[in-house]
Amino acid sequence: MAHPLKGHFRKSLLAFAGLTLVTAVISLSLGSVSIPYKDIVKILLSRIPLIGEFFPEHTGPESIIILKIRLPRILLGLIAGISLSVSGSSMQGVFKNPMASPFILGVSAGGAFGAAVGIFFDLPWYLLPLIAFIFAMVTMLTVFFLGRVRGRTDISTLLLAGLAMNFLMTALTSLILFYSDPAERMSIVAWTWGSLSGTVWNEIWISLPVMVLGSGAVYAYSRDLNVIQTGETSAKQLGIEVEKTKIIQLITSSLLAAVVISFTGVIGFVGLIIPHASRLLVGPDHRKLIPISALLGGTFLMVCDAASRMSGEIWVGVITGLFGAPFFIYLLIRNRGETGW
């Protein structure tokens, strides 16, 4: 059954938004200290301007647990899930290939190398996101400029350049691992599998506007992305500024991914399977695919992070893989024989 929700886009969008919200509230209740839903809602509402007037301010330890520890973490999970899924949808569109991921231009390998450098040289912890971000962007821009052929962005050259830079940065990271002591090794490996623990509000204030603006830019060019699927020459002849669309999509999606992984470490698989799953639900039209991917990705990562918290902080990238890969295989089996993802 292809695209079961295709004809019901608005309803699906609403339903998924509700699902995201419910998942967030349930996640807030999970943890070593159990807090009743009633209190969670009260604590949250008391913090909202105007409405908050009607609720007495909560000051107990529950309030601190919810507002200082759980809420930022869950929000970053939501933001990361949205950013990575939107980024993946865009990359798969630009590359016209369902195998493309947010990390195709080397963002994750570059970021991991940056983090490894930071850990190896004992940089203060608050500088790790910065150095990871710098290396992620440098790697991405190198790949991007290698892929420029006579003033145009050549997709197959870009793919190969990305492959090469991914290998190079991974090899450099392993070189650092080789010379590291066991504690540093553990930290580096942990970074390459990602974690949302210890999220602080400042991370939200940076990643939230990037997510909003980035997703907005990707969405603004989503119809152009549809037309590009029928071939770049044809798209030009249909009035699409192909080169501009590709540059905006590639740079924005890499930036989306780079910012979140700088805070969380590399969380794989979300940006690959969520666009897939969404495409199976609503079809390949990017105007529908991108919003649905965002909600599904945000929900998925919050669930995975909840699992991570409940299991003694197993790296969240491990959980996305453990959940995601079997689901992916299931979709694969179910859709064998059907053409086109």
Binding site: A2, K96, P98, T230, G231, S234, G283, W341
Partner: peptide, 8 residues
Amino acid sequence: TFISFPYS
């Protein structure tokens, strides 16, 4: 024309 995703 080659289209990889299943548009109608």
